[in-house]
């Protein structure tokens, strides 16, 4: 089995996640797309760890999962706070970053 297959798969998933972030307006779906991208990266790590026979890649996957968990928790909390205040999860309604 060639490692390139997994790399291509990861690249495709990553691209899909990226496009999803840009296309969707629902904040929860955007968070999900980000999870998708993180998973694509995890796959790449695992593939390279396999190729190099080094477990360092696995450790990194572990840390990425930690970050993903933290990010999901905080991100969802923000979404809840936003929803409470504005009754929406649409990022285009939340344009407070404009001065």
């Amino acid at each position: 089995m060639r490692v390139e297959f997994f790399l291509l798969m990861a690249a495709l998933l990553f691209t899909i996640g990226c496009v999803g972030v840009l296309v969707r307006r629902n904040a929860i779906v955007i968070l999900m797309c980000i999870e998708l991208m993180l998973n694509a990266v995890n796959l790449t790590f695992a593939a390279f760890a396999h190729e190099n026979q080094s477990m360092a890649g696995h450790v990194f996957v572990f840390f990425v999962m930690t970050v993903a968990a933290a990010e999901a928790a905080v991100g969802l909390a923000i979404v809840i706070a936003l929803f409470r205040r504005r009754r929406t999860t649409d990022v285009e309604d939340a344009s407070l970053m404009r001065w």
């Binding site: 840009l22 285009e92 344009s95 407070l96 970053m97 404009r98």
Partner: peptide, 17 residues
Amino acid sequence: LRLVQTGYVAGYAFAFF
């Protein structure tokens, strides 16, 4: 430059990508 600053996160993400 202010004109670019729409305040929409999606726009910023697009520029980033």
